[in-house]
């Protein structure tokens, strides 16, 4: 075969490949008309900034039913409550057995009248004899947990919100009982929000890019 013929055949071959490429490119570049998939965002419950529990003051403010704090619905003012213990020395709770007593590891920490005033059941009483209302519970906690109270007063313990710069706005801070149940003081466990890329929308992200372990 003549060189020129070979050249022409090669060129024709190249031309055909180009034409083929053009067709392939054009087909592949068809614009996807499907609507974009919905964007999955985290449940807005995880963005809630309200405290993990409502204390007495918050319940009063919110107009909640506070019969649980009305001690004299059941107790009598004339008959002071005596603590009763079983043979093993455990506190007999009777009507209060729905309360979990986990205020520290030792049994002595969990006696009712460490904090409640024996003579006025709807009042609190510090170890120094000061009587406080339920709204003033933070002072009661601080009467034992002095260093924590000191941190809290500095906004170094507990949750704050609003303004770091007090010249520009107000700061919110929470009372002890808005995070800690006074009878079971450990911070409650919570459901964790979704982990990294667990919400990845699996439609738009092609599988080869979705290689997280």
């Amino acid at each position: 075969m003549k060189e020129e013929t070979k050249t022409a055949i090669v060129l024709a071959g190249v031309a055909i490949s180009f034409a083929g490429l053009a067709v392939v490119f054009f087909t592949l570049s068809a614009i996807d008309e499907r609507p974009a998939p919905r964007i999955v965002m985290v449940d807005s419950g995880f963005l809630d900034t309200s405290p993990v529990r409502m204390n007495y003051a918050a319940m009063v403010e919110a107009g909640e039913d506070i019969f649980d704090y009305d001690c004299y619905l059941c107790h009598s003012r004339r008959e002071p409550v005596e603590l009763q213990f079983d043979e093993l020395g455990g506190l007999i709770l009777e009507e209060h057995d729905y309360i979990t007593f986990e205020h520290g590891p030792s049994r002595e920490n969990n006696y009712c009248f460490n904090c409640h005033d024996r003579d006025q059941l709807d009042r609190l009483r510090t170890q120094y004899g000061t009587t406080l209302t339920f709204e003033e519970s933070t002072q009661l906690c601080g009467s034992c947990h002095g260093t924590t109270l000191r941190d809290w007063k500095q906004d170094a313990h507990g949750r704050t919100g609003g303004y770091w710069n007090l010249a520009m706005g107000e700061r919110t801070r929470l009372d002890c009982t808005e995070c800690h149940d006074p009878h079971d003081t450990r911070f409650p466990t919570l459901e964790p929000a979704p982990g990294p890329h667990s919400m990845k929308n699996r439609i738009i992200v092609s599988p080869e890019n979705n290689r997280d372990p």
Binding site: E4, T5, T7, I9, L11, A19, F26, S29
Partner: peptide
């Protein structure tokens, strides 16, 4: 040789044209 030459020209022209088409489609 003349006809080969014209075949060559046609091929060369076609290569240039399809090349441009492929370029355009590639950038689509």
């Amino acid at each position: 040789s003349m006809s080969r030459r014209s075949f060559l020209r046609v091929s060369a022209g076609a290569t240039a044209l399809t090349g441009l088409a492929a370029l355009a489609a590639g950038l689509a």
